[in-house]
Design a protein around this nucleic acid. Structure first.
Lengths: 345, 345
DNA sequence: TCATAAATTGTGCTCGAACACAGTGATGCG
DNA sequence: CGCATCACTGTGTTCGAGCACAATTTATGA
């Protein structure tokens, strides 16, 4: 069995392949009746152009610019590189090259500096984590002017045209709430924000809203939802005080990957009646999960996010596929027993 | 920037592209010194052949045989077709055709009959669910003789050469145990097998083993692990009796997608102190999950399994990619709050 | 030494889509 | 009529790898 080719169609229509090509690409210069006839024929046999042949001419190496936070500054980003490498090795036969730029996640200046450096490599497409709202917005507009296709992940910049890959953070807050509710005794809950500047605030605000909404929706819930912001350095002492002040606490929800700080406090103070839910599969979090100090982790799957971003961009370049405007990953619930398969390469 | 082509390498080595081709494919008839030199060169520049050009000649339509249980007989299989369709539409430009055969999951004869029918379509590769151990083993051996590449999913036939996609069932039993342990009061646990013939027994046995192992590993656990087998028709009455007989029950683990049967019983008897964990996102299960009668579902992701099987097979045909011997999906934990994103198309 | 076989190497065509360019026929206009 | 213009159509080349076959060089034997 053979696939239909342009030549076959030309023969069927009694014209030359040049005319078929003109019809397919709406290049004009085709007699109306011939055009209609060919279009009908194409529809009838459901013609699918051979992507392999279509891309044969294109033997350039595509440059992919990658602009993400430096894993040395925050280990959360380590696994992203694995996801990118996975995508790269899957598509390495299609001629793509990476230009990776790592910026300091605490410095907008460094973000802009690395962006400039990346643009110097004249990327065809860009994969980025837009940590800083204002700066990222400007940068994205610049890309648009340059007509560079972008994929963003992890942080959603609202009202932007960039294609985004990530999670529904509001809903993930609700998931955390449901988990804490199902494992805790009746009592108060606390939302703990650790080590986050205002710049990243959208993140934690969304999660906080979702978390609260779950308990507000509950009928007959009598506990109180507390909130506690901790800063780098004094976080564990401050949390200790917070726990002492609220003896009726039954659950903690840490809104980012730093749940291990809270876990340390709970462990040293042997408060095993306080349940703990956090985010992300950092080694230290996993250790506490296995010991039972952390009860659940929500997996934001940064690796998969980065992988998908790369995949979308490459398939866009090579096969002219459309990149979805928004791609939300499922919210993975992790406990001590199902953590291992999620750590696979 | 250009990619290295055979022509480039020929020029670099000072020979013709024919010779390069002979070296790459070990076709012989190349002088030893030239061969060494070219091989060195290939390694130095890390030559990657252009897969697009390599496959250009191949304009045949590949026939993919699909042999899976009939969703009309068991709704668990409904979503498989979606996964297959997804893969198909992703790769439809590469010329693949599907020949789907649905067999009655309760009849080995029907399985064999449909297998015969499928083989009549002379498939190039086969995707199948090997429900029945003995029959599937014979069928797989037959495929091997015919030199047909196979992907199996959902059920692992041990000691077979077929490429398998699925989950670690032992571990998923442990996950269920951990979940029940974290949400239940201290008391007895029961493993409920519903509607399964001995033929599918490997399934439930593995899950049962995992479930038990979790509690046996626990230090100081005082509850009892009970077991209850239910058959079609009388399952709900029998479960009712079982619950009455064991007043100290605190958790139920249903080892397949039929947790909704148990949920109905718990609901009518208003035994909300008994927690319930089951498998799979059937509509009825989800309804009970949202009402809070089922506490957690473990998602076996049959849709993703089928999708991956198709993807592996097509990439094998089109790009000569290796199919992994075994591909284990992560064990997804689902509660009422994170269920929605998992239902997406 | 020369014919012939064997070993090695080079050439040219194929695949399907894309596109530049050449070719055809009809019409208009001085 | 001559010729330019226009609308449309056909032809031929390109991409990179693969492979058949031609061409060349080297080895062998009488």
């Amino acid at each position: 069995m053979k696939k239909y080719t342009i030549k076959d169609i030309a023969q069927l229509a009694g014209v030359s392949k040049g005319t078929i090509d003109r019809v397919i690409h709406n290049r004009g210069n085709v007699a109306k009746d011939v055009e209609d006839k060919v279009k009908q024929l194409l529809a009838d046999i459901n013609y699918q152009p051979n992507l392999i042949a279509r891309n044969l001419k294109n033997n350039k190496i595509y440059e992919i610019g990658v602009l993400i936070p430096d894993p040395e500054k925050d280990p959360y980003w380590e696994v992203c590189m694995d996801g990118i490498d996975n995508a790269l090795s899957e598509f390495n036969a299609f001629g793509v090259r990476l230009n990776t730029f790592l910026y300091d996640p605490t410095s907008t200046a460094d973000f802009l500096k690395n962006n400039e450096a990346m643009l110097k490599t004249t990327p065809d497409v860009i994969l980025m984590v837009p940590l800083f709202y204002k700066e990222a917005k400007g940068v994205l507009e610049h890309y648009k002017l340059l007509n560079i296709q972008v994929c963003t992940f992890n942080n959603q910049i609202t009202a932007s045209t960039a294609n985004f890959i990530g999670q529904d953070l509001y809903q993930s807050g609700r998931v955390a709430a449901k988990l804490l509710h199902s494992i805790s005794d009746v009592g108060d809950m606390a939302i703990i924000h650790i080590d986050e500047q205002y710049k990243n605030a959208v993140h934690m605000q969304e999660k906080e809203k979702g978390f609260k909404s779950y308990f507000y929706d509950l009928e007959g819930y009598e506990g109180v939802i507390l909130k506690c912001k901790l800063k780098h350095g004094d976080s564990e002492d401050k949390l200790s005080l917070f726990l002492a002040k609220h003896p009726n606490l039954k659950g903690l929800f840490v809104t980012n990957s730093k749940a291990y700080h809270a876990a340390r406090v709970l462990q040293t103070e042997t408060k095993s009646h306080i349940k703990l839910v956090g985010y992300d599969l950092l080694t230290e979090n996993i250790n506490h999960l296995k010991k039972g100090v952390i009860d659940f982790l929500i997996h934001q799957n940064p690796k998969q996010q980065a992988y998908l971003g790369m995949k979308f961009l490459i398939e866009h370049l090579v096969f002219e596929k459309q990149i979805p405007e928004q791609f939300l990953l499922p919210i993975d619930i992790i406990n001590s027993e199902n953590v291992t398969p999620f750590l696979r390469p």
